[in-house]
Structures are given as C-alpha cells and as structure tokens.
C-alpha cells in the first residue's frame, strides 16, 4: 500500500463533501493510503497568482515543503490544487534562480524547497499505479447503461509541458477509467474546452454562458452525465444548470458527477453514503439507470 500526503485544498472540504467522501473511500479501497498533514494551506491558485505571482509560488512551495518534510509525495483531489502545486514543483526544480528566490522567502519561517517529492493527481495514480485493470477488477456493479461525457477540465492537462499529466490534445486517462467501470465514455464537441468556472465571481453571466455551451454539447451527444474531476467545473456545471434554467429557460437536468462518485457506486457503495445532497442537479435518474 502506497502512502501519499493528501492535499485537500479549500473548496472540497468546505463545499463538496460528495467529492471528498467518494475520493477517500475509493482510494482506500484500491490500496492508496492518504495521510492528512498538519498545516496544509491554500495551494495559491490563479486568483492568488493574479494578485501576486511571487506570493503564489511561495505559498505553493510552502505546502510542498510540508510534504517533503514528511517524506511523502503529495496527492491532490482538486485539479486546481494539482495545477498550482505541480507547476510550482516543476518550475522550482527546473529553474534554480527562481528556486533561490522562493527559498529566500521560505527561509524566514525556516523552510526550504528541496525538490525531493512529486505532486500527483489521484486520477494519474489510479491510472498508472493502481492500474485500469485493477480498477476494473474491483467493480462489482457494471455501469453498462451509462453514457458518460468525460470532462477533464483545464488544470489537469495544461500547461502540459510542466504538468505532464496526459496528452493535452488527446487525453485518455479519464476515458479509460470511465470505461473500466463498464460505462461508455462518449465523445462530444469541444470536449477539452473550458467550462468557464473561474470567471464566477468576476462575471457570472459569462461563466454561465460557457457552462451552458458545455452542457448543451454533452447533452446533444446523448450523455447521461458529465464526469468531472475539478470542484470548480462541478459548481459551474451543476449549480450553473439551475441558473441556466432560470436565465435561458432551458432545462438540461444533466447530472454532474465526480469520477470517484461513479467509481464508488460501481464498487457497490450505497449512494446515500456519498452525500448525494451535495448535487443541485438531481442524480436520481442516473442512479436508476445504473440498476
């Protein structure tokens, strides 16, 4: 059993218990041990980079230092956290000048970025370390009838040169993991295009317009649900649909589920154990189809 330091981030533990519960359960069941470290802060994502890039790098590096001290690789659930931490980790490993600059800041609190660990997203761990076959073997309830629209979001894939998660133009990891559950992973137009989630709070209308485009295209392709991995995609597509209904008078009722939720369901976990009420778009239809 491999141990990872878990990086939960800010949004998931506060707003998306469905994600945290399902991710913890699924990873544990598949032999991944998660360690909750003291002191983990914010990953310092785009909103903080927008304020001060140097602060974002330093805070991000601080979190990595905590994992380095524990001697554990960092595992993230949120794609946003993954991008911030993995980018920082890679940038500081490559660029000695930048590392020097950041370490000078960290030295004020007695920390030093050493570059001794990896930052990984759990999807990659499931795909590469646990293995698609092993995931498939653990499925007790084949999701045969489900047509799932995989949505990678942006921050898992790009900038690919630093993140090295998957082929940024033709990713397979999420598709493979969905198919491992017996479901059909469907293709749809603009599959890799952003949902607009990060525009929420600055320009909600614009964020909604992008979400609408996404939901529309997945619906048109016949999806039973959109499978997400990022809490911001989830909010924008899930809560977004309630707002779309109000603003555009269009009702898609397309369930949005995080991948581990599907995984747990396929491994036989009861839906009620997974905080189903975290979903604004009801997932009942989807659950019915699974039977």
């Amino acid at each position: 059993m491999k141990s990872y330091a878990l990086f939960l981030g800010c949004t998931i533990p506060a707003r998306q218990l469905n994600y945290e519960i399902s991710a913890r359960k699924a990873l544990k069941a598949l032999g991944i041990d998660l360690v909750d470290l003291d002191g983990m802060s914010c990953c310092a994502p785009p909103p903080i980079e927008s304020v001060a890039v140097d602060a974002s790098l330093a805070v991000s590096a601080y979190n990595i230092c905590l994992a380095e001290e524990a001697g554990l690789d960092l595992l993230t659930i949120c794609s946003g956290c993954f991008q911030s931490l993995a980018r920082t980790n890679e940038l500081l490993k490559r660029n000695s000048q930048l590392r020097k600059r950041v370490n000078q800041i960290l030295s004020k609190i007695g920390k030093e970025f050493k570059g001794s660990i990896e930052v990984k997203h759990y999807l990659k761990v499931l795909h590469d370390e646990v293995g698609v076959e092993e995931v498939r073997r653990n499925v007790t309830k084949q999701l045969k009838n489900i047509k799932a629209a995989p949505f990678y979001g942006c921050h898992l894939l790009r900038p690919s040169e630093l993140l090295k998660f998957d082929d940024p133009e033709k990713p397979r990891i999420l598709d493979d993991l969905i198919e491992a559950l017996g479901a059909k992973s469907i293709d749809y137009l603009d599959k890799l295009k952003c949902c607009g989630g990060l525009l929420r709070g600055y320009d909600d209308d614009l964020a909604l317009e992008l979400a609408r485009d996404k939901v529309m295209k997945a619906s048109k392709a016949g999806a039973d649900c959109i499978v997400t991995v990022c809490p911001f995609c989830f909010i924008n597509l899930d809560l977004g649909q309630i707002q779309i209904a109000r603003k555009y008078n269009e009702n898609y009722s397309l369930p949005i589920v995080h991948y581990p939720e599907l995984l747990c369901l396929a491994m036989g976990v009861e839906a009620k154990e997974l905080s189903p009420r975290s979903h604004r778009v009801k997932i009942d239809k989807l659950l019915e189809k699974m039977v």
């Binding site: 003291d38 002191g39 802060s41 602060a55 805070v59 960290l106």
Partner: peptide, 15 residues
C-alpha cells in the same frame, strides 16, 4: 487540520 496562518502571513509579508 488547520493551516498555520502565522506562517502564511510571514511568507506573504516577504512577497
């Protein structure tokens, strides 16, 4: 688990 707010503030002050 709680973040170490003091440490974060100390870092931010340097940036």
């Amino acid at each position: 688990k709680k973040p170490d707010v003091e440490a974060i503030r100390a870092i931010l002050a340097e940036t």
